[in-house]
């Protein structure tokens, strides 16, 4: 049987696919929301697409797992071309989409086992995998419950567990922590870290800077379908700014002082942020003792504001 219609070929396994995307394009009504986007992700890497709503993150992910047709570009998983080996490759992908797509007609366990059948897993195999995931994701107390009784955090956990039912090589997580409380969010971060250590390639979209900074090996900053910059989070920040930042209310006196000192600064939303080495910028606090000054390390949000001219 051919891979097109027959029984699925098993995924390569955790040693395999490098995801390579070349010049991806997707336009709606003449406006390109993904504009010649290229990147690659190695096995066991967490790659984050960071950007505001409408940046093209979700559209990119939907193209990568086959829900949307691209207008141009090529996608390769290892040596396999997604255009020609799509059906085989889809069996090696796990998806947790931004929308709540849990099947509310089924129980928590049913959500896992029925999804196993969408990957052509034998019932016994899917049942065993579901049991494993129920334990691992702490969902065992809810096996016979319908998803509607679950909290937001538990629903997300179930959705991610479901995306792992086929033991994927690549996992797409589209804004997985949106709407979650800080505790549930951190729990999910730990889970993602575990999955990464198992060798799963994770492509994450988020508009939380901290999340991208903590989790990612590589961050790609997107805005209006275009890549603004990319790199490993610390390197990306270092490329644009000195390690420390002081943030205060914007004023003419402060602007004059920054200019005189020759420091890098960022102005946005009535605030000015001054960047420099620890000792270099600390003199600002003695120069303006009455101002309320907030001192912190430079971060991805600073990079984002610099690149796009606005905050997330």
């Amino acid at each position: 049987m051919t891979p097109e219609t027959g029984a699925p070929t098993r995924c390569i396994g955790r040693t395999g696919y490098t995801l390579e995307v070349h010049e991806l394009v997707k336009c709606f009504n003449g406006k390109c929301v993904v504009d010649h986007f290229s990147f690659s992700a190695r096995p066991g890497q967490i790659l984050s697409l960071l950007g505001p709503n409408g940046a093209g993150k979700s559209t990119t992910v939907k193209i990568l797992y086959g829900a949307l047709r691209p207008d141009g570009g090529r996608i390769h998983y290892g040596s396999k071309d997604f255009a020609t080996d799509r059906r085989q490759l889809k069996l090696c992908i796990g998806v947790c989409s931004q929308n709540d797509t849990l099947d509310y007609d089924l129980t928590v366990r049913g959500n896992l086992t029925v999804y196993g059948s969408y990957y052509h897993r034998k019932r016994r195999e899917a049942d065993a995998r579901a049991e494993n995931l129920l334990s691992r994701f702490h969902l065992r107390d809810y096996v016979s419950a319908k998803p509607r009784i679950l909290s937001g955090g538990l629903k997300r956990r179930l959705q991610i567990a479901r995306a792992l039912i086929n033991e994927p090589d690549i996992l797409f997580l589209d804004e997985p922590t949106t709407g979650l409380d800080p505790h549930a969010r951190r729990e999910l971060w730990n889970l993602l870290d575990e999955l990464k250590s198992e060798g799963i390639t994770i492509l994450l979209t988020t508009h939380y800077m901290e999340e991208a900074e903590v989790l990612s090996d590589t961050v790609i900053i997107l805005d209006q379908g275009r890549v603004m910059d990319r790199g490993e989070p610390a390197g990306l920040i270092a490329r644009h700014f000195a390690p420390w930042a002081l943030q205060m209310k914007e004023s003419a006196a402060v602007a004059e002082w920054i200019s005189a000192k020759g420091l890098t600064s960022l102005r946005a939303y009535g605030q000015v942020t001054v960047f420099g080495e620890e000792e270099g910028i600390d003199s600002l606090t003695t120069e303006f003792p009455k101002e309320s000054i907030f001192r912190r390390p430079s971060n991805l949000e600073d990079v984002f504001i610099k690149l796009t001219g606005r905050s997330l």
Partner: peptide
Amino acid sequence: QKTFEGILGTGVE
């Protein structure tokens, strides 16, 4: 229910 959207993220077309 977004059932189809969920299914499209799997091996099903």
